[in-house]
Design a binder for these strands. Structure first.
Length: 742
DNA sequence: GTTGCGTTTATTTTT
DNA sequence: TAAACGCAAC
């Protein structure tokens, strides 16, 4: 028994966690600690709570925190899980050593610890998709392939598919053999085949890894280095995986290796919420879990604690049409609640206006706080009209995902400087900034340097460093020397404490703010650019301050920690933190979570994509753009050609689109509104739209229809009147006077 | 080598 | 529509 084996000599004084308020299925999921366990957890069935309870229950049974690894899909989920566990366990100290992280962060930890075995430097850079694209572009030029002819992001995704050995089209359970002309273009396959070895060699030469590497390289370590595998298996005795339906082949293999013969693997997920097939997630992982791990205990969590009956039934009706499901039926003990609203708008701007005004109504009439309201959509592009309408209505909001601070050119430039200074072998960063701002090291010079580097099999930076002796670079020698000198000077400064100050200094020295000013056309654009740079610098200061605090705390806790774990070697400092401290740590974190250090949003409405909404819930949810081609989304639209329907169906994964719709609907607790419009601005021109087929699946009895275009129905008029009353009333309150416009 | 203008072309979802 | 790119003039 685990109790006797792991129980420390000084038994804990904590009362065992109370499981009496869990339902019977939940209790099984918590108490069944040994062997493979599959928890099929419907939306809103309390799955996060179950995982947290399970972890604390393991602690109760005397399992040391170090032996538990809980993996989540997003950083946000990991943070929330940690908080929940700490709260339930009644003590943060008791949780010290627990591993709660994303797969990718876990990969970073393994690589930091054992990456030396496969020639990875201690502080490797992590390439995001932008960096990947830049590298591929570079390689295309080396190959003397016409790079304009190829869509680089598409090549990147083919490379990823080839490397992870998973074809998204080869999904289990997908209907009629989709001959995706997109994935199979022989020309692309050929070029990608040429690219592949060079791409991997390129990354290794730069001391960099991409997202796939964070799974593939740890996998390689576990497969090929026996002692690494043994060390990991010895340590991680209890494995928990959240959102299991979104795991891919590499993740399954990683888990299988870690679980070893002990097979204490608990996976929690929902086949109905699998929405990442396009990224290689394999539904068959969850559907075939019991075959992969014979003897699996299966638990179904079907009681929903989140949504009203009407919302639940509507969502069930939509997902019910999917074939090949595990077949859960969610039910609630709560009331039926208000009907689901379906809104038909003439155009996207009126759709947005309706949403904004309804938010005002909910906020004043139903007293729903703004942070309990979300507006969801399929594509990021849909955010714009919504933003404008919300701004006009004076509703505070925040857009999650999409283009953030870190997608701005000036910010990426600054980041490239930091990365290049820390690791001059990082060619992608180096080449990005070698002549930005312009310093007289033009294309000619750079091309020659790269050619020399390739010929001599040396990093480009080494060539630049030796520019003085190279006749090819003689003409720009002074300028190149200045650049090299600057990079070398800032390297050490950015590697130690005070890096945030050094970054600011660097920023001043290269005149980044001035450059941004020059590059902006309008005055507001200028201000935004400068503000973006300032934003990053502020974040660095903030990060450094927090790191110092943490270090101080750790120093305080260390003696106690050493005492409590006398048997176990204290190999690594802080288990919570797979990342290095200092600037490299910040950059690594940033690559894996660009929302890092986002300030407190306050009371604001959330705007996000359906993918971004997974795992979250709000009292009121607006799901916008329920139109054919948008939700369900069709990858390729033959713009004006008549015969659209059958062809379009072939290009989309209808089942996944349906799941996506289901995910969106089940985010709502009390109020759910689905909107669509008759025409939508696309590429500047209006485009006719038809309502989504998913709307047809809603039982009429659960729906209130509101038509904003046709003759006003009684309901619509009533809504409009109420809206107007409240709008004016609150404008008076807010402004202390009558509004300017209705 | 650099800058600016006109042309083109893309539009899913993200660790 | 807006950003990215190519080309031509400084």
């Amino acid at each position: 028994m685990a109790d006797s084996k792991y129980a420390p000599k000084d038994a804990p004084q904590y009362a065992p966690i109370d499981l009496s308020h869990l339902n019977p299925q939940q209790r099984t999921a918590v108490a069944q600690t040994e062997g493979p366990l599959l928890v099929l957890a419907g939306a809103g069935s309390g799955k996060t709570g179950v995982i947290a309870h399970r972890v604390v229950h393991l602690l109760d049974r005397g399992v040391p925190p170090r032996a538990i690894l809980a993996v989540t899909f997003t950083n946000k989920a990991a943070t929330e899980m940690k908080e929940r566990i700490v709260k339930l366990s009644q003590s943060a100290a008791r949780c010290r050593g627990l591993s709660v992280s994303t797969f990718h962060a876990f990969g970073v930890r393994i690589l930091r610890e054992h990456g030396g075995r496969i020639g990875l430097p201690q502080r490797f850079a992590i390439f995001d998709s932008g960096d990947q694209a830049a590298l591929v572009k570079r390689l295309l030029r080396d190959l003397k392939v016409e790079d304009k002819k190829f869509d680089v992001p598409r090549l990147v995704s083919i490379l990823s598919r080839k490397r992870t050995g998973v074809s998204p089209a080869a999904q289990a359970g997908m209907e009629e053999g989709l001959d995706l002309a997109r994935g199979q273009d022989p020309e692309y396959e050929l070029v990608a085949g040429e690219l592949l070895p060079r791409y991997e060699l390129g990354l290794r030469a730069m001391g960099a890894v991409d997202f796939d590497d964070l799974l593939l390289l740890p996998l390689r370590l576990l497969r090929e280095e026996r002692d690494v595998l043994e060390a990991c298996q010895k340590r991680y005795r209890y494995l928990l995986v959240d959102e299991y339906q979104d795991t891919n082949r590499a993740q399954l293999e990683l888990l299988t290796l870690l679980a070893g013969l002990r097979r204490n693997l608990c996976v929690v997920g929902d086949d109905d919420q699998s929405i990442y097939a396009w990224r290689g997630a394999q539904l068959k992982n969850i559907l075939g879990f019991d075959k992969q791990f014979p003897g699996t205990v299966e638990v179904f969590l079907e009681q929903n604690y989140r949504s009203s009956g009407a919302i639940l039934d509507a969502a069930n009706a939509v997902i019910g049409k999917n074939p090949g499901r595990k077949g859960k039926t969610l039910w609630t003990a709560g009331g039926r609640g208000a009907n689901v609203r379906v809104v038909h708008a003439p155009a996207d701007d009126s759709e947005a206006k309706y949403v904004a005004e309804e938010i005002l109504r909910l906020s004043f009439e139903e007293k729903v706080p703004l942070h309990e309201i979300a507006v969801l959509y399929r594509t990021n592009a849909q955010a714009r009209p919504l933003e404008e309408a919300l701004k006009l209505a004076g509703v505070r909001y925040r857009v999650v995902g999409g283009t953030s601070l870190f997608d701005r050119k000036e910010v990426r430039d600054l980041l490239a400087y930091l990365r290049a200074a820390l690791n001059p072998r990082d060619e992608v960063s180096l080449l990005r900034i070698v002549n930005t701002p312009a310093r007289g090291i033009g294309d000619q010079t750079v091309s020659r340097a790269i050619e020399l580097a390739r010929a001599r099999r040396e990093p480009v930076f080494e060539i630049l460093r030796g520019a003085a002796e190279l006749k090819e670079l003689a003409h720009a020698e002074g300028r190149v020397r200045g650049f090299v000198e600057m990079i070398e000077r800032y390297g050490p400064l950015l590697s130690r404490q005070g890096f945030s100050g050094a970054a600011r200094e660097l920023c001043g020295e290269i005149g980044l703010v001035e450059e941004a000013r020059k590059g902006a056309k309008s005055l507001p654009a200028q201000a935004r650019k400068v503000e973006a740079i300032e934003g990053l610098l502020r974040q660095l200061v903030e990060f450094e301050k927090r790191a110092e605090q943490k270090a101080a705390e750790a120093a305080l806790h260390l003696p106690a920690k050493a005492a409590s774990h006398e048997g176990e070697p204290d190999d690594d400092g802080d288990d919570d933190d797979a990342f290095a401290a200092g600037l490299p740590g910040y950059l690594a974190r940033l690559a894996l979570d660009s929302r890092e250090a986002e300030g407190d949003p306050g009371d604001t409405v959330t705007l996000t994509t359906l993918h971004g909404a997974k795992g979250l819930e709000w009292r009121a949810v607006f799901l916008c753009g329920l139109e054919e081609g948008l939700l369900p989304h069709s990858g390729r639209g033959f713009d004006d050609a008549g015969g659209e329907a059958p062809a379009a169906d072939g290009a989309m994964n209808l089942e996944e689109e349906r799941r996506l719709c289901y995910v969106g609907m089940t985010r709502a607790r009390a109020f759910l509104t689905l909107t669509h419009c008759r025409e939508r601005l696309r590429r500047g021109a209006p485009q006719p739209r038809t309502p989504s087929r998913f709307l047809d699946d809603l039982p009429a009895a659960l729906v209130d229809l509101i038509d904003l275009s046709g003759p006003q129905t009684a309901v619509a008029q009533e809504v409009k009147d109420a809206k107007a009353r409240n709008f004016f009333a609150q404008m008076d309150v807010l402004l202390g006077g009558p509004p300017k416009e209705g």
